[in-house]
């Protein structure tokens, strides 16, 4: 079972803006426990992806402090994995799946790459060009890249956005399996309320500011969601678990 003794991520008074007139993130303070699954929700343009990128160190905050595994984000890079929402690859770029994984994680032994490709049913695509893969296949490769080095924290930005309904279920099962296997922290951006209800230990509601922060039971209420999305929202909960 994951240990939850201390925070994996601590954010204090975080602000980020493009110029003085367009604030994207305002005064965000929160912490995410080690070994938990935290899901960030919010309307379009609420700063979810920007928040994730700030946590990853890809964007420098305007002010405030961030600690990832007790380190500044740039120094925590070897211990985190990332699965982006979109991976804009030039389809003529002649890199193969194996070359891409090898170059992304040079310290990982070749046998582990092959194991993951086998495990995710991608071994036949080992020598395929990355640009020739379908959306679902590419997403699986990106997940492999994200978890190859057994990161302590895995960041996922709407990871199932390019996958069909059938593939989506398999995809989340895989993420959950890896989470149980490695006992790592997962920070995910998602629009899907059912995903949040099923997987999240913590929900962060973001709309430039941190609107709410708590367990799905506390957060997924019509009142909170109305506050977050600015529209009246009804929540129906099924009795049976999927």
């Amino acid at each position: 079972m994951p240990t939850r003794s201390r925070a994996s991520i601590t954010v204090h008074s975080l602000n980020f803006s493009y110029g003085a007139e367009t604030p994207i993130l305002q005064d965000i303070s929160c912490s995410i426990e080690s070994g938990s699954i935290a899901i960030i929700v919010g309307p379009n343009g609420s700063g979810k992806t920007t928040f994730l990128k700030v946590l990853l160190g890809l964007i420098k905050p305007t002010s405030g402090s961030i600690e990832v595994l007790g380190l500044p984000p740039s120094e925590a890079r070897p211990r985190v994995g990332y699965v982006p929402q979109r991976f804009a690859i030039d389809h003529t770029f002649p890199i193969t799946v194996f070359e891409f994984l090898r170059f992304s994680q040079p310290a990982v032994p070749e046998a582990r790459i092959n194991d993951y490709l086998d495990h995710l049913g991608m071994s036949s695509m080992r020598s395929a060009r990355l640009g020739a893969l379908s959306g679902g296949q590419l997403q699986r490769v990106l997940v492999i890249r994200g978890v190859l080095h057994a990161p302590d924290i895995l960041f996922l930005d709407e990871p199932a956005s390019g996958i069909d309904i059938g593939g989506e279920q398999t995809f989340y099962d895989l993420i959950l399996h890896l989470h149980k296997k490695h006992a790592n922290t997962i920070v995910m951006v998602s629009h899907e309320i059912d995903v949040v209800a099923r997987f999240a230990d913590t929900v962060l509601c973001l709309n430039k500011k941190l609107v709410c922060h708590g367990t799905p039971v506390d957060v997924l209420t019509p009142q909170t969601l109305q506050r977050l999305y600015g529209k009246e929202v009804a929540v129906y909960q099924h009795q049976e678990k999927m």
Binding site: L56, G57, L58, R77, P78, V80, Y82, P84, F87, A88, I89, F93, I95, E99, F100, F103, S104, Q105, P106, R145
Partner: peptide, 18 residues
């Protein structure tokens, strides 16, 4: 060549791979 390839492919991925 690894670094130059990753830079050509995607800068974010390159940065995250150290």
């Amino acid at each position: 060549r690894r670094q130059l390839t990753m830079l050509a492919l995607d800068k974010e991925s390159a940065w995250l791979s150290g």
